[in-house]
Every structure is written in structure tokens, then in C-alpha cells.
């Protein structure tokens, strides 16, 4: 995608999704709305992830948190845009997310006898607060605070990392202007 095309779309984080065998460039939120099939995560994992996202940053599920992560986990390494890549962990990252989501469900079952997505909002908040500090009882997978940090930042990405999200805070997006001639060309 060239810059002009990107800017004409208003800086929205468009990704290429496959729907009915055709490639379409959609925001993760649009992909969610249109029911784009998931590539990596299962429906149960997405239910947990959406519930976690809504607890971490309300609005992130609708903004397409699960489709964003699922898309990225299936992307070639050079195209991966998840912030987890900064944290010194080796790709691929699907195991990190899957085991973290399983850990969250395990902790929810240990504490309350049901999956995380089935918990009442207040119980979800309590469990996420615990996960932010240390591995709670029933947890397995990556260190719980690391999983919290990563998924919290993924939620920030989909909610506040786009032009709409930035401008929604009253911050001008200020993408670079297209230069009259490409420097050095």
C-alpha cells in the first residue's frame, strides 16, 4: 500500500483479511462485524480474549482485538505488528496467547468454577487485577503479569492506535504530508 492510499483512508489500521476466498482490506473492527473467519484462535479462545479485552479497555472487543491478534499470529514474521515482538520472546507467538488465555480460564475456574468469559464483570476485574500482579491459583502458561501487559497493550493498539482513536482523545493525528517529490528519488 502506498502512502497516498494509506492517508486517503485516514490512517485507519487496515489489514488484509480473506472473506469468501477474496482478499479485502478491513479494519479489525470491520472484520469482526463481518464475521471474517479466524485463522489461528478458536472460538472459545476468542470469547476469552474478547472478555479480557473488555475488562482491560472497554471497547476493545468491538474495535476488533481478537481479529487483530488472530490476523497477526497468522501473518509472516516480517509483517507481524504485535507489540509482543519488543519483549524479547521468540516468535511464533500463538503459543504465548493460547497458553495465556488457557491460564486465565484456569484461574477463573479455580477461583469461581467457570470460564473467564462467563464471569460477572466485577469478578473479571478482580481476577485481572490479580493477574496483573502475579500468577493466581490455577494459572498456567506465561507469567501472568507479562500476559496482562501484552494484552493490555494490544487493547490500547486497537482502541487508541488508529486515527479515530487518537483523534477521539482530542489529539490531531498529524500524519506526514505527502512530499511534493519523493526525497532522494
Amino acid at each position: 500500500m502506498d502512502r497516498r492510499k494509506f492517508l486517503s483512508r485516514g490512517g485507519t489500521a487496515l489489514l488484509t483479511f480473506y472473506l469468501g476466498g477474496c482478499a479485502e482490506e478491513l479494519t479489525p473492527g470491520q472484520a469482526r462485524e463481518r464475521g471474517v473467519p479466524l485463522q489461528v484462535l478458536s472460538a472459545a479462545e476468542v470469547a476469552t480474549l474478547d472478555a479480557l479485552g473488555e475488562t482491560l479497555l472497554p471497547g476493545s472487543a468491538a474495535a476488533g482485538l481478537s481479529h487483530f491478534i488472530d490476523h497477526q499470529l497468522g501473518a509472516p514474521r516480517s509483517e507481524q505488528l504485535l507489540m509482543i515482538k519488543y519483549l524479547g520472546l521468540d516468535p511464533p507467538f500463538d503459543g504465548f496467547y493460547r497458553s495465556g488465555l488457557a491460564g486465565l480460564d484456569g484461574a477463573a475456574r479455580a477461583a469461581h468454577g467457570s470460564a473467564f468469559a462467563a464471569l460477572a464483570e466485577e469478578l473479571r476485574r478482580e481476577l485481572v487485577a490479580a493477574v496483573a500482579q502475579s500468577d493466581p491459583p490455577g494459572w498456567s502458561g506465561p507469567p501472568a503479569p507479562l500476559f496482562y501487559f501484552v494484552t493490555r497493550n494490544d487493547s490500547l493498539d486497537v482502541v487508541y492506535g488508529t486515527r479515530e482513536g487518537i483523534e477521539g482523545l482530542g489529539i490531531p493525528y498529524m500524519a506526514h504530508i505527502l512530499p511534493p517529490s519523493r526525497w532522494g528519488a
Binding site: D2, G11, A13, Q80, L81, L82, M83, K85, H176
Partner: peptide
């Protein structure tokens, strides 16, 4: 890479 590849987005910049 070319300068025209450099998109103003913190997410895209991770490339």
C-alpha cells in the same frame, strides 16, 4: 525500503 514506505503509525512502524 524507501521513504515512501514510512507510514505514520506506531503500529505499522514495528516493521
Amino acid at each position: 525500503r524507501e521513504n515512501s514506505d514510512l507510514i505514520s503509525s506506531g503500529i505499522w512502524a514495528r516493521r
